[in-house]
Design a protein around this nucleic acid. Sequence first.
DNA 1: CAGCGTTGTCAACAGCGTTGGCAAAGGTAA
DNA 2: TTACCTTTGCCAACGCTGTTGACAACGCTG
Lengths: 223, 223
Amino acid sequence: MSADTRRTKERSALGREAILAAATELAASGAAITFRGLGSALGADPTAIYRRFRDKDELMAALLDGLIAASLDGVDRDAPWRDQLRSGAVSTIDIFAAHPQVGAEATAISTGGPGELAVIDWILSQLDRAGLDRQQVVRCYAAYSSYVLAAAATMSQQQLKENEGVPPSSWVGDLRAVDPTRHPALSSVLPELLVLTPREVFLEGIDVLLDSFEAIVDHDARA
Amino acid sequence: MSADTRRTKERSALGREAILAAATELAASGAAITFRGLGSALGADPTAIYRRFRDKDELMAALLDGLIAASLDGVDRDAPWRDQLRSGAVSTIDIFAAHPQVGAEATAISTGGPGELAVIDWILSQLDRAGLDRQQVVRCYAAYSSYVLAAAATMSQQQLKENEGVPPSSWVGDLRAVDPTRHPALSSVLPELLVLTPREVFLEGIDVLLDSFEAIVDHDARA
DNA sequence: CAGCGTTGTCAACAGCGTTGGCAAAGGTAA
DNA sequence: TTACCTTTGCCAACGCTGTTGACAACGCTG
């Protein structure tokens, strides 16, 4: 209404941030992220988005970068390194599960955005604090980040399926009809497998990974 | 031509296996898997595929199951457990990288097919051979399989991007413009990070994971 | 005032998965 | 043989998607 609120270059209501905010909200609602849906959510023409983003890939990358950045917000930056890395990982998959479309449809792993840079730097500094040398910092960073990102993306897709009506089956599919003679090792631990949820599976992996990091630290401290 | 070649029920050239073979070949060629493209590759109408598969998800799941099963073929089933698990993991990501469309477009992690069952049983029996008890077998299986599958799917997408013309950038995006004051830990190990390829990153993760499994075995043997 | 770059709108295109109707081809029984 | 019925492949069409080019309205600058 009043012209006071707008300053230079604020003539357009459709800035990058407005679009990203609407898209994030859309993703959180569980709806698919489409140009037409996004346009109607913004009260604007769908193609107006092309004035801010070259194509959908760029939009999804920016969206993904925002999610990655948000995964750092819940982390206590004064906690021990292991606690920080674990809570960051948990926070990541929770945010991805809350915005399934972004994680599932984002084709690129690397966003190249500020959020990704901040997270990379944070992971590296935690591993440095742990007492690892340069080479092992890189090695452990690679294992940690590829595991967390890949698992988060995977869980996004699984979450999508559940939202679409597919019943929350066991994370390992339908195993009720497994033949004990053909797959003895499988049928022997079947009860334990069936109760696992994808989230628990992910947490197991993270703990195994962090155990391994600690073992490296201890081993080096001894030498 | 001659009617001798066909026997009972061979009237249709479009069995499930024929479709899957054509789709696998199509995926190996790098082309996108679409009903129309698959139809022309088969010399048949695209919609004929619907007589064998309910929808594209079912087709992709069957395709994925075949790839998973194939990842076991190159493994020496008499080798030590650690060598088997490592070569199985490498074989998995190589096959996924060679058929990027399948890994990238397959929405479901779990195929429910015979290939998946065989691989699950194989992983579990290797971990059992390693000397782990039931609970730890399940725990390590969860970490291993979720890591391998998630990383393989991720590398499929990355491979897709490269095939489409995106230059083979560093696995962690464009980091040349990183500010040392804002991201000190990052810029300190930047040289080591930039030379990493996605494949190396994956292998680092696998070795870290297998190290961790061995540590569990040793720790239990001592107690 | 005139000119220019920016921004939002509109119609349209090609591609995708998917559906229902229809015709031809076996197998089976009278 | 004749008649039927199920299976199988073809065809046209639908609704959805991302994306493009042309066009009009706007604010800034000379």
